[in-house]
Each structure stands twice: as C-alpha cells, then as structure tokens.
Design a protein around this nucleic acid. Structure first.
Lengths: 195, 195
DNA sequence: TGCTTTATGTACCATTTGATATAGAAAGGC
DNA sequence: GCCTTTCTATATCAAATGGTACATAAAGCA
C-alpha cells in the first residue's frame, strides 16, 4: 500500500506548541486560529492529525504529564518521604516558573472552571491531579511501613496537603510570584512535615 | 424630572445570580444566554443595568469580596496572628464547600487562564488576590510588633504561605474534596506556623 | 389627558466559533 | 508515465458569540 504525501510538520512539535497555548489561555480561551497559528499548521491539518479541539487537548494533557511535569512524578523515587516532598516542591517550582513555559500548572489552570461543553475536560483534569495525590499517598504509606514516616501520620492527609501546597504555588506562579518567593513558601510548608 | 418605568427585577439579586454563573463556569465559560437565564432578565435589561459582560464581571468581583468572601477578610480582626490564620482557614473552608455556592474560590477560578480579550480580568483577579496577601502581611507585621509572632518570622513570606494554602484549598474544593478533608489539610498547614 | 422618561421583549446585527468540502500538491507503487 | 494515497490550502459552513435597534409598556409630572 502506498504511503501518500508525507506530513510537512512534526506532530510532537505541533503538540508541544498546542500545549503551550492551552497552558497559557486555558481550553476555552484557546481559539482555533490561536492554536493553528502557534502550531504553524492549517486547520485541516490539525483536524487530520489530532481529531478535534477536545481530542487535541486530551493529547496535550498526556504530553504535559509525560513531558514537562514528568520530573515531579519522578520525585517519588527519593529515599524518604521528606525527601520526596522536598523534591516535589523543588521540581514543581522550577516547572511553574520556567520562563520557557506559561506560568503555573497546566493541570490546574487548563480547565478549572468552564462551561458545560468543556465540563468533561474539567473532570479529566481533576482526575489527573488526583492521580498524583494517590501516588503520593501510596508513597507515604510505604514510608510509614519503612519507618521513615511516623506511624501516627495519615498518608492520605499528608498527600492532600502536599497537593494543596502544590496547587496553591501554581496560582501564585500564575499571578506572577518569583521563584524565590515560591521557594520560601515551600520552605515554610515543609515545617509542617512530621519530624 | 420624571423617573420612568421602574425596574421589574432586583439589581443585587440579579448580580448574585450572575456571580454564581461566573463562579462556576469562569468568565469565558459564561455565555450571555447562561447569564440572562440565571439572572432571569432579558439581554437588554442586563446591558442597561450592568453595561456589558466585562463590566458585569467586575461588579460580580466586588459583590463576591463584599459578600460571600467578606468573612475571610474579617478574620484579620482576631487577637493573634495564629488565631487570624486559624480563622482564615476555617472561614475559607466553609465558603469553599458551602453547598449553596459553586465549589472553590471565585477569585481563583473566575479567570485564572484565558484568552487575550479577558486578560485584563485575569490580572484584576490576581490583583484582588494580592490585596488579601498584603492585608495578611500587614496584619503579621503588626503581630510581630505586638510580640505574638516571633520577630525572626518574615510577615511577607508567611502571608504568601497562607494565601498559597488558601488557593490550594480552592483547587481541592473545586475538584470535589470534602469539608473534612480540607479541614485536615488546614490542620497540617497550621503545624508550619511559628510556635 | 398628554408628555417625558425609563424598562422590557423581540428581532436582529456583525463577528467569531469549531468544523468541512473540495481542489490541488507531493510522495510511493506499478 | 500513471494511479493511488495522503497531506495542504482556500474557501466555506452552520451555530454560537457578544452586543443593539426598535417598538412597546409602565411609571411620574404637567
């Protein structure tokens, strides 16, 4: 079977550009013209390669989690629970304030509040955020079992606390807070960690 | 001068309804039909009474700050810095999870990421959030002067920390977290407070 | 009772929205 | 060369968007 005319653009690269648009403007704030202009492809090319706007957004979510935000998840590999939290904060702050990206966390601001048609994406984003809370909780449960986290500490509560600080830092970053300011906030938050 | 035909609707009540729409769906997710239906007025009535969509949103911001969110600001009147923070968390959580309101904080999710036309509203929301950070900082500065907060504590950092937790709680609430869960998170956050 | 003023509701406006039809261009297989 | 296949670009679609004109209705004032 013949292969036809080859694509003139790189799909991953175009997806990266789309992600940045969604990241900065949110799903509803990202118009097709804004997307196609940033992606440097025509509208039919976008639809041929990514389906439609919603499908493009879903692919952008995966791209974000596996790309820019991957470092955060890999922080779970640290040796102790406290080291995990320190590394999560540190890595997140770097991502949230990286000048190459829009400010803030895509999973927070990509579709936090929206109309009915985008509501399924709002829930999808909440689900993705929750997946990280679950991963944190499981990591902390392991830490309790391994003895590097006090057994009276509730892993679920601690996981939600870390996620709360993380999402709060995202809002701060989105509002224009500097990296230093966020680092000081994270340092204060760490004082809440069980000794 | 004659007064003309009287309004058939209550302006404040209509504004309250508009606020709830913006609160739940965000600025860009709130269409004129959705607004007018919730406000129970016709489109020309909306424009006559509130100017346009942007102006209605700005009025909704004021309404939110002076109405539902007023309790949070009044927490600054507590006797000590720690009591202020406790009361801020407690009052916020009640607001964030009040079943009569949309979940989350309007100042966070009303226009966190949006297109160019709404960018001035995004900045306005950031400014409003920052006003609370400033108020917190000033309150903590006073607390240092009054001796109920350690003099080596940085009021600006602490204020930003409290705001960070607050905004993080908003995201959690918006994702469906229960009041109890948020209360436990706040309790953990309080452990970071200077002794 | 007019007359002025303001509010309401229908119908409409231009623009933008997300999404395609269609025609032409660029590759491989025969 | 020719055919098939796939991508690209222009031009377009119907629907939804924010915003108004215009006629009518309801009040106060003379």
């Amino acid at each position: 079977m013949s292969s036809g005319r080859p694509r003139e653009f790189n799909v991953e690269e175009a997806l990266d550009r789309a992600l940045k648009v969604f990241w900065r403007r949110g799903y509803e704030g990202s118009s097709l013209p804004a997307l196609t202009k940033a992606m440097r492809i025509s509208r039919p090319s976008l639809y041929a390669a990514f389906g439609n706007k919603e499908s493009l957004f879903r692919k952008a979510i995966d791209r974000y989690v596996e790309g820019p935000a991957a470092g955060i998840r890999s922080a779970l590999g640290e040796a102790t629970a406290r080291a995990v939290v320190e590394r999560v904060f540190c890595t997140s702050i770097e991502l949230l304030t990286d000048s190459r990206n829009p400010r803030g966390c895509f999973l927070v601001q990509g579709a936090l509040a929206c109309g009915d048609t985008a509501d399924c994406l709002r829930r999808e984003m909440a689900k993705r955020r929750d997946e990280f809370v679950v991963a944190l909780r499981e990591r902390f449960e392991r830490a309790v079992a391994e003895g590097d986290l006090a057994s009276n500490a509730d892993p679920a509560d601690l996981a939600r606390f870390v996620a709360t600080v993380l999402h709060g830092l995202s809002v701060q970053a989105s509002s224009g807070a500097s990296r230093r300011e966020l680092e000081r906030v994270a340092q204060i938050a760490l004082r809440a960690w069980p000794a």
